[in-house]
Simulated scan of single mutants.
Amino acid sequence: MATRPMRIRAVQKDGVTEVKALMSHIMETGQRKDGEGNIVPAHYIDLVEAKWNDQTVLSAQWGPAVSRDPFLSFKFKGGEKGDKVAITWKDNKGESRTDTAEIR
């Protein structure tokens, strides 16, 4: 399912790092019906975690109300140019993906 990597950008300015990420995921709610009237099974991200130098800087629980290919933006204090930020998502079907970006 998760074939495309996340597009992550992390920029540090004045002691604050801003992270923006675009995730590739279908985010199916489980309430839509297909052309034959059958319910399309739910398939959505339910946990997102971001780490900087193995320290968790964001942990979020999501549900089916989040749109397809979600965009996430957040800031945290700290981070130096060259440090790595890793974002991991897990979905309700047990799939997961982790991608990293270097802080600029």
Rank of each mutant, 00 (worst) to 15 (best):
Glu102Thr: 15
Ala2Val: 09
Val48Cys: 06
Gly35Cys: 12
Val85Lys: 01
Glu49Arg: 02
Asp99Glu: 10
Gly82Phe: 09
His25Thr: 05
Val19Gly: 00
Ala101Phe: 08
Glu49Tyr: 06
Pro70Glu: 13
Thr100Cys: 06
Phe74Glu: 06
Arg104Ser: 13
Gly15Trp: 12
Ile26Glu: 13
Thr29Lys: 02
Asn53Glu: 09
Ile103Asn: 05
Glu102Asn: 12
Glu28Cys: 10
Thr29Ile: 11
Lys84Arg: 02
Pro41Asp: 14
Ala21Tyr: 03
Val85His: 07
Gly30Ala: 06
Ser24Phe: 13
Thr17Ser: 02
Asp34Arg: 07
Leu72Cys: 11
Thr3Glu: 15
Arg32Val: 14
Ala65Gly: 12
Arg4Gln: 08
Ala2Asn: 06
Lys75Thr: 14
Val16Pro: 01
Val19Tyr: 08
Pro70Asp: 12
Phe71His: 13
Glu80Val: 00
Asp99Pro: 01
Ser73Glu: 06
Gly94Cys: 14
Asn53Asp: 06
Pro5Tyr: 08
Val66Asp: 04
Pro5Ser: 15
Ser96Ala: 15
Ile87Lys: 00
His43Cys: 05
Met23Val: 00
Ala42Val: 01
Leu58Trp: 10
Glu80Ala: 01
Arg68Ser: 11
Trp62Gln: 03
Gly63Glu: 05
Trp52Gly: 00
Thr98Ser: 11
Gly94Asp: 12
Lys93Gly: 08
Pro70Gly: 11
Phe71Ala: 08
Lys77Arg: 03
Glu28Ser: 05
Trp62Met: 01
Arg32Gln: 14
Gly15Asn: 06
Leu22Tyr: 13
Trp62His: 01
Ile8Thr: 06
Arg7Trp: 04
Met23Leu: 12
Pro64Leu: 07
Lys93Pro: 09
Glu18Gly: 02
Met27Tyr: 06
Arg104Asn: 08
Val57Ala: 04
Met1Ile: 13
Ile103Glu: 03
Glu36His: 14
Asp46Arg: 14
Ala42Thr: 05
Met27Cys: 12
Phe74Asn: 04
Glu80Arg: 04
Asp99Asn: 08
Thr3Ile: 13
Gly37Asp: 11
Gly82His: 07
Thr98Leu: 05
Ala21His: 00
Arg97His: 14
Asp46Tyr: 11
Ile87Asp: 00
Gln12Asp: 01
Val19Trp: 08
Gly15Ile: 06
Thr98Phe: 02
Leu58Asp: 03
Leu47Asp: 12
Lys84Thr: 04
Ser96His: 15
Val48Tyr: 02
Arg68Cys: 09
Glu95Ile: 10
Ile8Pro: 04
Gly15Asp: 05
Ile26Val: 13
Arg7Ala: 09
Ser67Trp: 09
Ala2Ile: 15
Glu80Asp: 00
Ser67Tyr: 10
Gly82Thr: 04
Gly78Ala: 05
Phe71Gln: 14
Ile45Gly: 02
Gly15Ser: 06
Asp34Tyr: 13
Gly94Leu: 15
Ile8Gly: 03
Ala101Cys: 12
Lys13Gln: 07
Gly79Ala: 03
Arg104Val: 03
Ala101Trp: 07
Leu58Cys: 09
Arg4Tyr: 03
Ala50Leu: 00
Asn53Cys: 09
Gln61Phe: 11
Asp14Pro: 13
Arg7Glu: 07
Leu47Trp: 15
Ala10Arg: 04
Leu58Tyr: 12
Arg32Met: 15
